[in-house]
Amino acid sequence: MRHTDRPRGRRAARRRVAASVGDSREPGPTRPAAPCTVRRALAPFAATAAVLSLGLTLALAPEPAPVAAPGAAGGALVGEAQALNVAADVAARPVSHESYAATTGAETLVASGTNADWAKLVLIAGDWPVTEQNVTVMLQWMREENGVDNWWNRNNPLNNGHGSGGGSGLGSYDSLVTAAEYAADNLLKRSFYTAIVVALEDGTSAHAVAQAIWASPWASSHYGNGAWWSTSPVLIVEAPESAW
């Protein structure tokens, strides 16, 4: 025998199930928030925490030690000192110490006014070195021409004929300063005095200058080729102020 109420029961059950699923108004379980949403929510708190952490780190960090300048008072160099080893066969280059001699001014020489001063005036006028050897030979020459006590005779200590008005060397000049200029000029202008000029330019040997004077035509006697030339020290004598 067929029961007519079973299908009805099945359809009713399906309808009840469908109705309970499709028309249910009860709230379901809470869904977790999406990851990106959580990060956005926590970002302000993370930034604040980072700033606080950096501030604490800087506050707790030790201050750097002051650096002392090398050579400063109280300072010291830290570390190993460097050393330079030089081979034993390496020698330092010699240092050149050049000497310079100041040229005495003409005014100073005139103020002093001795025969040595006049000898220096001749050397300065000829642009020759004012060395001891050159001054010595000039004094010897002046002594051979006019003696020592009257070396300024006629304001012409070397009996120079050039510009003095006396071809034989018996002329005179207006002053000893003019006489010094003409003596140097005569030696420089005449080719037969070249050896004297060369020896004076060297300035290291009074004897070499004297030999050149003896060989020249300055004196017709040639000073006995040196036999009449004295090399003894010459007395320093001051000339009258009027001679200058």
Results as ranks from 00 to 15, higher is better:
W229E: 09
N146V: 10
A180T: 04
P32D: 11
S216C: 05
E98F: 07
R25M: 09
G55I: 13
P94F: 05
V67N: 08
N156Q: 00
G163T: 08
A227N: 11
V135Q: 02
H222W: 07
Y173D: 02
P233K: 11
V209Q: 01
D5E: 13
S168E: 06
A116G: 13
R154N: 14
S221K: 08
S230F: 09
G75C: 10
S112M: 00
G71S: 07
N150Q: 13
V209N: 01
A102D: 11
E145L: 05
H97S: 07
A101E: 12
P217Y: 09
A206K: 03
V148R: 04
A239F: 03
R16I: 11
G169V: 04
G28T: 10
R40F: 02
Y173V: 01
R40V: 12
A88V: 12
V148N: 08
A111Q: 14
K120L: 01
A212W: 06
A92S: 13
V130D: 14
W141L: 15
P217D: 07
V130G: 00
N134H: 10
A88W: 04
S232A: 15
S172I: 00
P29M: 07
L56M: 12
S20C: 04
E80Y: 03
A116F: 10
G226I: 03
P157T: 05
A219H: 02
K120I: 05
